[in-house]
Write a protein that binds this DNA or RNA. Structure first.
Lengths: 342, 342
DNA sequence: GTTAGCACTCTTCCCTTACGAGTGCTAAAT
DNA sequence: ATTTAGCACTCGTAAGGGAAGAGTGCTAAC
């Protein structure tokens, strides 16, 4: 329903505003080499675009800026995919070429690079342990009723948790349980532990161990904790260099949010696989309603593992961010898969 | 060498500037009930105090503000120790009354409260494990030459690290070493591990294990890593609410610093036991040269464990901060000692 | 359908002015 | 010898008033 020319002008305005952060006037557009219309014509078109809701004016005698709807249209239909420069690619390559001990480092490093390359803030969600498999489970008594449960994965990651056992549980039984678990569960992916526990293990334990319900319950809790996603940040303060964040109070609110991992995690995750872009009020979370969040998922053998996220102003360099996100989500999946095979 | 009256006026000016963050004029001082001199007299005294370097003027027709030297004198000779209100004390009590599993939580919680109570930023240094004792050491092979070393303390804290062994080390030897270590080192405080290893254990291993040097070396590295101090923050963004931080660029620099734990740790630690106050350029670290840092140490059985720190503007509520720091450094020592006995 | 022209609107910048807070000095009072 | 009143002076800030510049929207001509 928009004419070719309107599309063209809309795109030009968004592009210009993204780079300059200032309202765009008709003259600026008409000066572009690839445009052959007079400012007046462009003004008319702009006026129409405003009526349609794609543009807005900060005040009556300023140029136009894209509205949220304008950005949305731009993202959906107009943006020319940017090709990553050789410099970008080689930089990414070299920084991810390092040998990482743990997948956690891959994630951390990716978050850092994403923020460096975009100069926005990056937030990456990833499980602390995911497809890695149980290598060994240990229960070490500390004192009286307390014990530390330790989970070691085949990737060398260690998770621990202190638990309380009621006195009624015999320590011989605990030992028995640990042995059974190690025997039955070694090599099982962490994310399946909980499920296997209820399905197969419960029956076995029932046979050999009294008071097995208490232990099953405790173990279930431990295993479910392992599935929570951790939040990694890159360039927390990058966002402060954007002109729209020149207000200390506003900055404070956002930075405080970054301390609440649970909240961030909840509002960053997207239901869809693949790339998601939420512009301004498309974010249901109030504090983000004048920001854009771009997320992408990364996978291992085709299954969801975690989420990459970029947080920036609605006036975001969409083309660049999108290509970077696509590149990274693929690359991380690749890296993790490679690690997996090692 | 300063007269009584000069002292009085200096104190009044600092007190006033600390609360109002605005240059203090002679009239303001003379209006105080406890002062019976005319503004003119006070002006003369102020002029003298300025000549002596205790005060300065932002510009010729403004009131005076304390110079760095002024604050220093105030802190050393003038400040009236503030008594914590009952409300403060009861709040601290109630929040630290919770049962903590690990000393790490005590530290974290203290950092949080210090920042809440002062509305500055608090930074606490503490070892991840310190006086707690080795409960069990484990070495779990992962693949080929890699193994995970796990250290469990009697407080239930778990530390782990992935290590590489040269192929030449036989796995039977590894097992032997672990057994010996557990036998000899159980109950030894973490901070003594390194020392004991060289002194007692080396000799024993020499007898039973071939290639023991490699293992000793690896173990030493692991144990020494355990002694590094961790950095805990409270209220990272509190400092933004101070009027002197109304500049986003400045804020950005400081917040970026907070990401560099090693740097912060290095410049926060003070050589002295007890309370230390570094005002403005007394901090050798440039980025802090217009801030004040107050540190205090906390101890366990008289030995240094870690450092509490408060970071704020030079115009800091010294009396309050000092009493809080004293209270906390005592209280934390107490809490940790109590935990120790449990 | 396009564009030149022009009046109109707003913002921004700069200048001036007025005001207020505060100082520093002098001369008088204590 | 101190203290203080008085007053001129300095400087920052707030308010007001153009003037300039950017940009629009409309009209009328191309």
């Amino acid at each position: 329903m928009l004419t070719e020319r309107q599309l063209y002008i809309l795109k030009a305005i968004v592009d210009d505003y993204i780079t300059n952060a200032e309202p765009v006037g008709s003259r600026t557009i008409s000066k572009r080499e690839d445009i052959s219309f007079s400012p007046a014509t462009i003004r008319n078109e702009m006026s129409d675009l405003e009526e349609l809701g794609f543009l807005e004016k900060p005040h009556s005698s300023a140029g136009r800026i894209p509205s949220q709807k304008g950005y949305r249209y731009y993202v959906d239909h107009l943006l020319s995919p940017s090709i990553l420069t050789k410099k970008d690619v080689s930089e990414i390559r070299s920084q991810l070429a390092v040998q990482f001990h743990e997948s956690e480092q891959v994630i951390q490093q990716s978050a850092k690079m994403l923020s460096q390359l975009t100069s926005y803030t990056s937030i990456v969600l990833g499980p602390e342990v995911f497809e890695s498999k149980l290598q060994q489970l240990q229960m070490i008594p500390i004192s009286g009723e307390q014990a530390v449960v330790i989970i070691v994965t085949d990737s060398g990651h260690v998770e621990s948790q202190t638990v309380q056992f009621p006195e009624s549980v015999a320590s011989a039984d605990v030992e028995k349980v640990v042995n059974i678990l190690n025997e039955k569960l070694r090599g099982v992916p962490i994310y399946q532990l909980q499920q296997k526990l209820s399905q197969e293990i419960a029956a076995v334990l029932k046979k050999y161990v009294s008071k097995y319900e208490v232990m099953i319950h405790t173990l279930k809790d431990i295993f479910s904790d392992q599935q929570q996603e951790k939040v990694y940040y890159g360039g927390k303060t990058n966002i402060l260099s954007q002109p729209e964040f020149n207000d200390v109070e506003r900055v404070r609110n956002i930075l405080n949010l970054f301390e609440e991992d649970a909240v961030i995690s909840k509002h960053l995750r997207s239901e869809d696989q693949g790339l998601t872009i939420r512009i301004g009020e498309e974010n249901e979370f109030k504090p983000f309603d004048d920001l854009t969040i771009v997320t992408a998922t990364y996978t291992l053998e085709g299954k969801y593992i975690g989420t990459l996220g970029i947080l920036g102003p609605t006036r975001m360099e969409y083309p660049r961010v999108i290509s970077l996100m696509e590149y990274f989500s693929k690359d991380m999946s690749k890296l993790l898969n490679k690690k997996q095979r090692d």
